[in-house]
Nucleic acid binder design. Structure first.
Length: 524
RNA sequence: GGGCCUGUAGCUUAGUCAGGUAGAGCACCGGGCUUUUAACCCGGUGGCCGGGGGUUCGAAUCCCCCCGGGCCCUCCA
């Protein structure tokens, strides 16, 4: 059984409509790792619907979270915004300076992310957390947290094992400069929390407005209660024992809520580079990924892995494997059969689930999403054929394409071209035509092959310059010089590509200019 | 220091929750397609399931110990 189906089955034991939630702080550019947060929850939401449960999928944006520090992409002038909620800070412009025209910092980073989500078929209900503060929905929770300060204090200390400071208070008011930093609470008189900030200025915050916020561990628990959250998969950072999930559950209960069950997912790592980190420049944005990877494949990357396993993401060789695996799965889905062992049965169900959850729209037929060609083959054609029609006719000839290319195939080619054109394409898959024969290649070419190449160069002078004629010329030259086809091709690959293997060579040769091709071949 | 997750063929992994003869893909090797050598089809090699102990008729699966990797206990998906 797929993990999303399993989660839905567990959730069916709970009363009421399901509210499946993701939460992310828009502190900077979103990266591919955030997609796991989103898709883990969204797939469970879909599984609930498939299970016949009533379900909503909600994306809570932590827009009330403060700016923690001045990130590398920000100008030093953001120093004055440290501690200020992201919803109240101007977005950075091109130069990293605050841009008065750019809207809020939170919105600025959120907008393109939502666009990317739409492309992968995710359209959540978006809740900006600062609005939930602003419209008073947090007020009751804040009051409860303050009046139960000692209990909450005890929960956090005993569950997380850390010591809270003497003056700990379960509510952080904004000071006179709009920052949470350095503000001390001096008293509570519902609905006002009185404080004195770092400059010694005194004031009060109305808990019915966004004039302060709950600290993270309480904020999270409170929103579970406010929005009746039934499921929220969290990153392993929150999931560790004593982490915010563990404190959130009893705090949520104390606040009168029915918390979701703990559910934790592992992180996505970039191959060989450790975890995602925007500050270290180790990042691939969802938009960037979508420009080179078809959306259903991106979903499949998440759907095929169990939640508690790392995902090694890379846009190189791994992408070919994953994409081709998806093609095979969809074009030949596994079926349950008589006499299958229990584990095989489970495996079939899991793989069918992964296929179902990879679809961009929930009720679409998976078979509409395949290209009918492996990524590997398409990458070769895209490199050899500069125009799309050349690719289609080649695919028709090879029997991959019965008629006109489907929308999904067209989009595959488009993304393939941008993949090849950018820096993420694996060098080993790149086709590089040699301008002269390298020493290493030369040493691998024996006498028989040389005479074949000589003959071939001669015949290429006069043959028609199209794929079929060239192919025929290669074969006839091989047989006339008494060389096996295999050896003939190997020597050709060595001369043209500098390697002993490659794509269909006649297509490649036809794309080359006659003079230069003959020049390279004769140079041996 | 305390705790969570993880370790299955060269690589990516299924199967672990509900114990019952180790499954798959890639790679590799071989064969076929009498014009496709990174296409396509068929077949094959390859695993004391991290190590050790225990429970059981039976353990990758349950329990204990150890080793390696990741993470949390301040913010991080």
């Amino acid at each position: 059984m797929h993990w999303a189906d399993f989660a839905a089955q567990k959730l069916s034991e709970r009363e009421g409509p399901q509210v499946v939630v993701s939460g992310i702080t828009p502190s900077g550019e979103f990266h591919i790792g955030h997609l796991r947060e989103i898709l883990s929850a969204e797939m469970i939401h879909r599984a609930c619907l498939d299970f016949g449960l009533e379900s909503r999928y909600v994306f809570i944006v932590d827009s009330m979270d403060p700016l923690r520090r001045v990130y590398d992409f920000l100008s030093p002038s953001y120093e004055s915004y440290i501690g200020v909620p992201l919803a109240n800070i101007p977005a950075p412009g091109e130069d990293g300076e605050p841009d008065p025209e750019g809207g809020s910092y939170a919105e600025f980073f959120l907008r393109p992310f939502l666009g990317a989500l739409k492309q992968i078929g995710v359209e959540p209900e978006v809740i900006m957390n600062h609005e939930t503060y602003q419209n008073g929905e947090f007020a009751e929770m804040i009051d409860l947290a303050i009046t139960n300060r000692d209990e909450i204090h005890g929960i956090i200390e005993s569950v997380s094992g850390r010591d809270l400071p003497e003056d700990w208070f379960p509510y952080s008011p904004l000071g006179s400069n709009g920052s949470l930093d350095g503000v001390k609470v001096t008293g509570y008189d519902r609905p006002f929390v009185h404080w004195i900030d770092g400059q010694g200025i005194e004031g009060k915050s109305d808990i019915r407005l966004a004039e302060g916020k709950l600290p993270w561990r309480i904020d999270w628990a409170a929103r579970w209660a406010i929005h009746s959250v039934t499921c929220e998969p969290a990153g392993k950072d929150h999931g560790a024992a004593g982490g915010s999930y563990d404190t959130g559950i009893p705090i949520c209960e104390l606040l009168g809520g029915n918390p979701p069950e703990k559910m934790v997912y592992e992180w996505i790592q970039l191959k060989g580079m450790g975890p995602m980190s925007s500050s270290a420049g180790v990042t691939i944005g969802p938009m960037e990924a979508l420009s080179i990877v078809p959306p259903e494949i991106l979903r499949y990357v998440i759907a095929r892995s169990k939640m508690n396993r790392h995902i090694e993401f890379d846009t190189g060789a791994m992408m070919f494997l994953t994409a081709d695996e998806y093609e095979r799965l969809v074009s030949n889905p596994p079926n349950e059969e008589e006499g299958m062992s229990k584990r095989k049965r489970i495996s079939v169900k899991t793989r069918r689930g992964a296929m179902r959850f990879s679809q961009v729209s929930r009720d679409s037929d998976p078979s509409d999403s395949v290209g009918g060609v492996s990524f590997r083959h398409l990458s070769m054609l895209a490199q050899i054929k500069s125009d799309d029609d050349g690719v289609w006719s080649s695919l028709r000839r090879s029997g991959h394409l019965p008629g006109e290319p489907s929308t999904s195939l067209r989009s595959r080619l488009e993304k393939m071209r941008s993949w090849i054109g950018g820096g993420h394409f694996p060098e080993g898959s790149r086709i590089i035509i040699q301008s002269e024969v390298g020493e290493e290649a030369e040493s691998q070419i024996d006498e028989d092959s040389r005479s074949f190449l000589e003959l071939l160069a001669q015949r290429l002078e006069s043959c028609d310059w199209d794929e079929d004629s060239i192919g025929e010329t290669v074969r006839s030259s091989a047989s006339d010089s008494g060389l096996g086809n295999r050896q003939a091709y190997v020597s050709l690959y060595l001369v043209i590509l500098g390697r002993d293997y490659g794509p269909r060579i006649s297509s490649l040769m036809a794309e080359m200019d006659r003079e230069s091709l003959i020049g390279v071949i004769s140079s041996i």
